[in-house]
């Protein structure tokens, strides 16, 4: 990974720890976005006008300092860069780890394959990340770009959401994705904060883990409320 001529400080800047910090920061940026996104989604319960108004308003936040849709584009760019860096770091670390652990067939013994104490969520980070990435593409094509339109295309964002989530398999696909997000956040939040140095004691560890559970639960449930609300006919 590092070339021979680098000083230790430069190697340290390219080290696994630095990569992990990059993952942590980009992950937390995306988490921040998810919280805002979830807040917006919940407006679907306030009715079409409120939701569409909110969706529209996103485009003119910051005006007149920023041009129309300026902030949105800034957010989009930051997110895109975050996603790319997050994925880059993930792939680099995954490849390193695969070699370091001594191949995929590590221990012959079939016992203790699940490890000693590790959480289920920690197993899901890598394939969970891939699922989430695929889902995000599908999601953008569906609700942002209006390319895929299960239940019928519509000009109104509210209508697009309602059209889509009246179909059970659309809700199912979102549910699976949100569970993947929840698991990813369960370990990811904990791991990001630890990587950034917050795991300072056993008590801190308990607090960070509790926080990670709360974040994962809030995000998962928060995102699933609108689809289920629509599917169950609470939102029309």
């Amino acid at each position: 990974m590092a070339t021979v001529s680098l000083t230790p400080a430069k190697k340290a800047a390219r080290s696994t720890v630095a990569l992990k910090a990059l993952m942590a920061v980009t992950g937390l940026i995306m988490l921040g976005y998810l919280i805002a996104h979830m807040y917006g989604n919940l407006k679907v319960f306030s009715g079409r006008a409120s939701f569409d108004n909110y969706a529209h308003h996103l485009r003119d936040i910051g005006e007149p300092v920023l041009p129309h849709t300026g902030l949105l584009w800034i957010i989009r760019v930051v997110l895109l860069v975050s996603v790319i860096l997050h994925a880059y770091a993930a792939i680099a670390l995954w490849r390193r780890a695969r070699v370091a652990r001594g191949g995929t067939k590590r221990y012959v013994s079939p016992k203790a394959r699940r490890g000693v104490q590790r959480s289920y969520a920690s197993f899901t980070m890598r394939w969970g990340g891939v699922i989430i990435a695929l889902f995000v593409i599908y999601h953008l094509l569906h609700l942002t770009a209006n390319v895929i339109a299960p239940g019928g295309a519509a000009g109104s964002p509210y209508q697009r959401v309602v059209n889509g989530f009246q179909i059970w398999w659309v809700v199912l696909s979102y549910t699976i994705a949100m569970i993947a997000v929840g698991l990813h956040l369960r370990h990811g939040t904990w791991s990001a904060l630890t990587t950034l140095g917050a795991n300072t004691s056993a008590a801190a560890r308990r607090r960070i883990n509790a926080l990670a559970y709360v974040v994962a639960a809030v995000i998962t449930i928060g995102f699933l409320l609108p689809p289920f609300g629509i599917l169950l006919g609470l939102v029309k």
Binding site: T16, V17, L93, G115, W190, T195
Partner: peptide, 13 residues
């Protein structure tokens, strides 16, 4: 890193 060890993912094993 130079020795070829992997990165930490804070799993705690």
């Amino acid at each position: 890193d130079e020795e070829g060890f992997g990165g930490c993912t804070n799993i705690g094993e």
